[in-house]
Simulated scan of single mutants.
Amino acid sequence: MDLKNKVAVISGGSKGIGKGIANRFAKAGANIVFTYLEGEENIDQIVEKIESYGVKCLAVKTDISNEDDVIHLVQSTKDTFGKMNILINNAGTIGNEMPISEMPTEEWDKVMNVDLRGVFLMCKYFIPLMEEQSVGKIINISSELSVKGRANFTHYTAAKGGVNSLTRSLALELAPNILVNTIAPGPIGTDMILADMEPEWIEKEKDIPLQRLGTVDEIAATALFLASDEGNFFCGQFISPNGGAIFI
C-alpha cells in the first residue's frame, strides 16, 4: 500500500500506537508531522528513524486541547509541506480510575479536553487545509471500551464514545471527498503497558478469544489500509481490531 508524496499528521506520534503509525506510514512513503507533549529528549531520535525511510518529518510540541497550539501546528505543517492529506487523531489520555461519585470535575474535564475537544480542534483547523487537496482521510483512534464500557472509567469511555459519534457526523459532512473512519483498538501491548502494568492486569486483559494482547503493528496496519487507496470504500466506519474482546 502506497502513500508516496502524501503528508500525514499524527497526534501523539512519539510513542505507542501513534509512533507505530508514523513509522508504518513513513515506510509507505508518506511525509510525517507528529505531535508530542513530553519526552523531548527522544524526539530527534524518533525523527531520525522516520526520515531513514527517505521521507521528511516534522515534530511539533503541541497540547491538542489548546486552540492556539493547534493553530500553530497547522501553520507549521503548511509552512513546511504546503499541504496535508491524512489526519490521524491518536493523542489521548485514559485518566485515573475512580468511581464517578468520587471523580473531581477537573479529572473529567482533563480527559474530555484531550480525548474529545482535542479531536474537535484538530479536525476544525486541519480540514480546511485538507480541502485544498480536494480529497483526504481522517482516522480517529477510539477504543473498544467506548462500546463495551468499563467501571470507574466513565470519563474515558464517554469521551471515546463522543469520538465515535463525531466520526459518523463528520463522515456525512465531508464525504465523498474526505473519508472519515474510526479505529477502536482492543487491549494492545504498547511499551508503556508492558513496562508499567502489573502482570496480573496484563493476564486479565488477555482473557479474550485470541488469548493475547494485540500489537502496535496490527493497529498501524489497519490505519495504513484505511489511509491508502485500498480503503477508499470505507466511510463512517467503526473498525475494532480487538482479538474478539467485543463483537460489533
Rank of each mutant, 00 (worst) to 15 (best):
K148P: 07
I10N: 02
R24Q: 15
L224D: 15
M98G: 00
R212Q: 00
V135S: 13
P104K: 06
P199W: 05
G189I: 07
N140K: 00
E132L: 14
T93F: 09
D63M: 06
G236Y: 08
T35I: 10
D115Q: 04
V70M: 07
G82Y: 09
G243F: 12
I17L: 15
I138V: 14
G29F: 03
G54L: 02
F225S: 11
S143P: 11
I188W: 14
E51S: 06
V111P: 11
N242H: 09
M98L: 11
T222A: 15
E203Q: 06
N23H: 08
P99C: 01
N23E: 15
S65I: 02
Q211H: 14
N152K: 10
F238L: 13
L172Y: 04
T154W: 11
N140S: 11
G236I: 14
A221Q: 04
V135F: 15
N140V: 11
L226R: 05
G118C: 09
A220K: 04
I50M: 05
E38R: 13
D115E: 01
I94V: 07
K27I: 09
E102D: 14
E203I: 05
V7L: 04
L73W: 05
G161P: 02
L210D: 11
P209D: 12
R212K: 12
V33N: 01
L129N: 01
M84N: 13
I43Q: 06
Y53V: 00
I50F: 02
L3S: 06
V74E: 06
E102G: 15
R168S: 14
N152A: 11
F81D: 05
F34P: 08
M84E: 14
N181C: 10
C123A: 08
K110Q: 15
M98D: 07
M98W: 11
S228Y: 03
C235H: 13
M112W: 13
I50E: 12
V60L: 02
D191K: 09
